[in-house]
Computed example of a mutant assay.
Amino acid sequence: MRHEVIVGVERRRRWREEEKLSILGKVGLNGATVSDVARRHDITRQHIYQWRQELRRKGVLPRTSETVFLPLLSPSESEQSRDRQPLEIEVVLGNGRRLRCASDLPLERVQQLIRAVEAA
C-alpha cells in the first residue's frame, strides 16, 4: 500500500496523460466499476468521467462509436435439439469489453445488455 504525505496547503495532484489513460483503461477490466477504480487510485468518480471527456475532446481517447446491432439468426429446431444447451454468442464492443449470452436470447434483451455494458 502506498502512502502520500502532503506538506503544505496544496492537495491538488497533477496527473500526466499516460497516467490518466492507464487509470481509464482499468475501468471494466475483470468487472471493475468506475467506483472501484476511483477508490483504488484515491480519486473521485468524477475525475474519471472528466478525464474521459477531456481526452476524447483532445482526440487521445476514441469517442464511443454508435452501436451497431446485427441480426441474430436463431438455430433451427433441426440444428439444436431441446435436450442440448443453447449456443453461446460473444459480442465484442467498441470499448474492448465482451458480452457473452445465450444465442436464443431475444434481440431486444441483447440490445438492452449491450447498452448497459457500454454505459458502465
Rank of each mutant, 00 (worst) to 15 (best):
T64N: 09
G59N: 10
E17P: 00
R11T: 11
G8Q: 11
W15Y: 09
L105D: 07
R2D: 12
R16Y: 10
D36F: 08
R52Q: 05
S35M: 14
I23M: 10
S74D: 04
M1D: 13
I48G: 01
L113R: 13
F69S: 09
P86R: 01
V60K: 12
R14F: 09
A102Q: 11
A32M: 12
L55T: 05
V91D: 03
N30S: 12
L93P: 06
R109N: 15
G94L: 05
G25E: 05
L113S: 05
I114S: 02
R56G: 06
S35G: 13
I23Q: 00
A119Q: 14
Q112S: 09
Y49G: 07
Q50R: 14
L21Y: 06
V27E: 04
E19F: 02
N30R: 13
L55E: 03
S22I: 09
A32E: 00
R63G: 11
L21T: 00
A102N: 09
R100V: 05
R109E: 15
G94T: 06
S35L: 14
W51G: 01
S22R: 14
P62W: 02
G8H: 11
V68F: 04
P71N: 11
R84A: 05
Q112Y: 00
A116N: 10
I48N: 03
N95A: 03
V117R: 06
H47E: 08
P75A: 10
K58M: 05
Q53H: 15
R14H: 14
L93F: 04
V92H: 06
L61I: 08
K58Q: 09
L73G: 12
S76Y: 07
D83F: 14
N30F: 13
E4D: 13
D36E: 10
K58P: 03
P106K: 13
L113F: 04
L61H: 08
V37I: 00
G8L: 02
L70A: 12
V117N: 02
R56F: 01
L61V: 07
R12W: 07
E10L: 12
L99R: 06
L29F: 09
R56I: 10
G96Q: 07
